[in-house]
Write a protein that binds this DNA or RNA. Structure first.
Length: 432
RNA sequence: GGAGAGAUGGCAGAGUUCGGUUGAAUGCACCUGACUUGAAAUCAGGCGUGGGCGCAAGCUCACCGGGGGUUCGAAUCCCUCUCUCUCCGCCA
């Protein structure tokens, strides 16, 4: 959520910036009209309240002195209804304003290239060399099929439906090894605190990170057993619970930066992506991800984005997977992000780089929604933190990359050095 | 699942019986100043959050777990939800 002041004192500039960067058309006329009404109604409501408070105080004092309060009460006659009407009108306007403002995307950082879609993203760097095969490489589905049917989509469909998978045997173990390796790397070398979080969260939490109110259809919502139970939703990423750890709290300056890592399943409805990536593990309703979250002082967040992205890159480097780093253009960035790098891993059978991590500096967009703040030493006013998040990495897609890039002519898959300790010392998984 | 108790500012903890000048005593923590070579101790003062109006000084509104209600007036009364604790039962 943007600072409400931007919509008052810098409305035209804000609207211009949103249009130029995001192609987002802010309804300036509606905002101006609502704002005029809001101002008038709020001043009137509050002065009515002030008057009521003063008169009630008088009544209290008169009563304490044993005076007759009947005439005072009579004077109050229609104040109640006036106040009630004003309050209702004000609430209505404020709800409308809030609905508009909560739906406005973040303003991209000045360093973000202007563009319409992913074609305008800017490649920043490449690491590693895509391998040349002296045989025709199979895609990950086929590779896994030959490892004792380690990736079973048919059975998963029976259990749950499309876009689910059952992993078994060495493939399942490799999946687990990847997650373990990532967690260990980030906790022992990059200074993140390992965290276990709820997979079901409430609406306030989802509002905090920006999933609600606008993107509710991307989530799975869980109906309670009883009608009046609070509604919960499955997390689409651990970014949600991790960032919300500090919702409605004020940290001491010395506690920053806060760095959290969690390995969780992620649940996404994939509404609106029918027909895309239907084969294999690329796009599932449920997938595992190791997520990195940082909460930092505002002046540190741009540098922190570079650091955090570097932490995600390190995973790919240790796994020896070729990838490239892409700076997303304004049109391809997520709703709440001020600046995003995507890491794209080489997928041989698709002959292209595919997203495996997305690292974003959300600026104060989320922390304003959730009022996650910190106080500088000696300062009176608390300030909003900045929040960042990034995949480090998406485990399912990492498994895809590994199976495809490391496959051998005989159908076996070689295991990168760093994973071998997690695989009981195995250097390769044999086809069977 | 049953029975009971509770939720107040950074923390602890009054106030809730019998609604009134209580944004809330007190202690701790913290900040500023005095004393001190410095520190401690002591003394004096300050010290919640969010919002509105205003160039500013300042004025003002809301908030005592969330939501709703009664009332001229609610931390205090009523309803409801959530959470925490104690005991019993069940259980990975």
């Amino acid at each position: 959520m943007l600072d409400a002041k931007l919509f008052r004192s810098e409305l035209m500039e804000t609207a211009g910036r949103l249009k130029e960067t995001r192609g987002y058309i802010l309804d300036v006329a509606a905002l101006e009209a609502l704002e005029t009404q809001r101002k008038e109604l709020q001043v009137r409501t509050e002065s009515l309240q002030a008057e009521r408070n003063a008169r009630s105080k008088e009544i209290g004092q008169a009563k304490a002195q044993g005076q007759d309060i009947a005439p005072l009460l009579a004077e109050m006659d229609d104040m109640g209804s006036q106040l009630e009407a004003a309050k209702q009108a004000l609430n209505h306007i404020q709800d409308e304003l809030h609905a508009i403002i909560a739906g406005v995307p973040n303003i991209p950082d000045a360093s973000v290239p202007i563009g319409a879609d992913e074609d305008d993203n800017v490649e920043v760097s490449r690491w590693g060399e895509p391998r040349t095969f002296d045989f025709t490489p199979k895609d990950h589905v086929d590779v896994a099929a030959h490892i004792n049917n380690g990736m079973d989509f048919e059975r998963a469909a029976k259990l749950s439906g499309a876009r689910f998978v059952v992993l078994q045997g060495q493939v399942a173990r490799l999946h687990r090894a990847l997650a373990q390796f990532m967690l260990d790397l980030h906790t022992s070398e990059h200074g993140y605190q390992e965290t276990y979080v709820p997979y079901l969260v409430n609406h306030d939490t989802l509002f905090g990170t920006g999933q609600l109110p606008k993107f509710g259809e991307d989530l799975f919502h869980v109906q309670g057993a009883t009608e009046n139970q609070v509604p919960l939703s499955l997390i689409p990423t651990a970014e949600v619970p991790l960032t919300n750890l500090w919702r409605d709290e004020i940290a001491d300056e010395t506690m920053l930066p806060l760095q959290y890592v969690a390995h969780t399943p992620c649940f996404r409805s994939e509404a609106g992506s029918h027909g895309r990536d239907t084969r294999g593990l690329i796009r599932q309703h449920q997938f595992d991800k190791v997520e990195l979250v940082m909460l930092v002082k505002p002046e540190d967040s741009m540098a922190a984005l570079e650091t955090l992205t570097g932490h995600a890159e390190k995973v790919l480097q240790r796994l020896e997977l070729p990838y490239r780093k892409v700076l997303l253009c304004t049109g391809d960035m997520g709703f709440g992000s001020a600046k995003t790098y995507d890491l794209e891993v080489w997928v041989p059978t698709q002959n292209k780089y595919r997203e495996i991590s997305s690292c974003s500096n959300m600026w104060d967009f989320q922390t304003r929604r959730m009022q996650a703040r910190f106080r500088r030493k000696g300062a009176k006013k608390p300030e909003l933190m900045h929040s960042l998040n990034g995949s480090g990495l998406a485990v399912g897609r990492t498994l895809v990359a590994l199976l495809e890039n490391n496959q051998q002519a005989d159908g076996s898959v070689s295991i990168p050095k760093v994973l071998q300790p997690y695989m009981g010392g195995l250097t390769s998984i044999a086809a069977k």
